[in-house]
Structures are given as C-alpha cells and as structure tokens.
C-alpha cells in the first residue's frame, strides 16, 4: 500500500528554459533513504529543489502519495515536506527562534504567538538533535556543525513526511557526520520518514542509503539507480566521474567503500 510514496515521473529540470536534467524517474517508499550522487554540476541540487517545486519542473511530475507536489497548497505542502538547505551565516536570531520558525505551517491565519504545543515541539527537536544547550545562542555565533544541526531541527519541527536534504554533512567533521547520519537512520526507523538527500561523499552514500541515484553530467540524465551495491561500482564511477577507483565491501557493514586507485 505504501509503495511509491514518492514518485518522480519523467522529471526534467533546469533554469530559464536551459535544461539541466531530463527523464528522471525514481520511486521511494515510506521510511526509505534515497541519496542522489553525481559529479559537480550534474544537477543534484537542482533536482532536489525541483521536487517540492522551488524550481518549476520543465516536464514531468513529483508525486507525493499520488498528489502532484507542484499543485499542492503551500501551507499543506509545508506540513508534509521539509527541506534542509545550506544554512546562511548572516541570520541574526537565536537558535530557538530559528527552530520555532519550523512551526509556521501550523499557525492559523494571522496567529501571532506560538502555542504551547509549538514550543514543546521545538524543544523536542532541539533535544533530539542535541543542541538544547544552544537555545539562547545567536545563530551567527555557533559553529557550522551546530548550525547544520539547527537547520535539521527546524525542518523536523515541521513534522514532515518527506525530508529533503542538500549535502547535510558538508563542512562537518567525521563525528558530526556520523551524528547526523545516525539521526537520519533513527528518523526513518522510528517515524517512517522518507529522506531524499544530495551527497558528495560516495562512502557515506553507500553506507547510509537504501537507494542511490547516480546522475551523469554528459547525458544530463539518470545514469543508474538501485541499491548502493548495484550503483556504486568501479565501472559506473569510471563512466560518470572519469576516475579510476577501487570499490571494496566494508568488512563491518558489507556496504560498498570507494578508494582512489593510484595511476
């Protein structure tokens, strides 16, 4: 019944009639983590932004539960889909104020002050992401890893069913990377959250996703999609990234690990 919770059909995306990607098809079930990988400039972020309609799709549809996301009323969509973008540094508000903005979709028209339930939700996700102690700090004064966690807490405060994430682990040290990816795994297991994320690190993509989408810059379309093992192979990486690599299975998890081959 929950098959094809997210259904991307023949999506073509780009800016101002300049097509970046075409004929993108993939599906995701509830509680599935999908990772989009591909070389720089292959249109990963563009694809991610086209799913909720931030960028108008040139062709095709993104369906959530059979409903066209681009036709969904904005407020309803904000309750179902949240997106974690690269956080800006120049936002002058406290971490708590920032996370509370995630409750806006639940505000009634011209509601002025948050309900106690909104405060509780914000507290819950601040706790969940482990940044409750930063509540009163200014967003411009915390580290980039903490800021990344705050953007995730804000997205979770929207209590979405679909979470889109644009490179959630970029600029983070390995412990923060592990923390965020552990969080994503928890979310999908406990809340049946569907996650679509853009990831540069092939090892992290292989380790933490159920489905991997590999985009090719030259043909401007999906090169291969499937389980990490099917997609992250020496041949595919060579074809898309033009780089010689060795792919070996991680002895701990059995997932594919990518290593550079010295020429």
């Amino acid at each position: 019944m929950n098959r094809q919770f997210l259904d991307i059909q023949d999506l073509a995306c780009g800016y101002d009639r300049q097509m970046v990607l075409h004929h993108i098809n993939f599906q995701a079930q509830k509680g599935e983590v999908v990772t989009i990988i591909g070389p720089n400039g292959s249109g990963k972020t563009t694809l991610l932004k086209t799913i909720p309609g931030l960028i108008h799709a040139l062709e095709g549809y993104a369906l959530l539960d059979q409903e066209d996301l681009s036709q969904m009323p904005a407020k309803l969509k904000a309750k179902r889909v949240a997106m974690v973008m690269q956080p800006m540094e120049s936002i002058y508000m406290t971490v708590e104020e920032y996370v509370l903005l995630g409750r806006l979709p639940y505000f009634k028209t011209y509601q002025f002050i948050e309900d106690p339930s909104d405060i509780r939700a914000a507290d819950k996700y601040l706790e969940y992401t482990g940044i409750s102690h930063l509540k009163g700090e200014s967003l411009s004064r915390i580290s980039s890893g903490e800021r990344q966690l705050a953007t995730i807490a804000k997205a979770l405060a929207q209590e979405p069913e679909l979470l889109l994430m644009d490179e959630p682990t970029s600029h983070l040290d390995i412990s923060h990377q592990a923390q965020i990816l552990k969080l994503i795994t928890d979310l999908k297991q406990q809340h049946d959250l569907t996650v679509v994320m853009v990831q540069h690190d092939l090892n992290l993509a292989g380790e933490y996703s159920d489905q991997v989408i590999l985009l090719d810059k030259e043909t401007q379309t999906l090169y291969k999609s499937g389980s990490p093992k099917e997609v992250i192979t020496e041949a595919h990486i060579r074809a898309v990234y033009h780089t010689d690599v060795v792919v070996e299975s991680n002895p701990h998890s059995g997932r594919p690990g990518v290593f550079l081959r010295k020429s």
């Binding site: 931030l54 997106m83 973008m85 508000m93």
Partner: peptide
C-alpha cells in the same frame, strides 16, 4: 510580522514554510 520573520531566512526557505 510573522511572515517577515520567515522572509529573513531567504525566499526559498520562506516559501518552503508555506509563505506566499
């Protein structure tokens, strides 16, 4: 004023929070 708070995050983020 509530909508303005969202707008300070930038247009994309604000529209993802359901703001016109």
């Amino acid at each position: 004023s509530v909508k303005m708070n969202a707008l300070t995050l930038g247009d994309e983020e604000a529209s993802l929070l359901g703001i016109d």
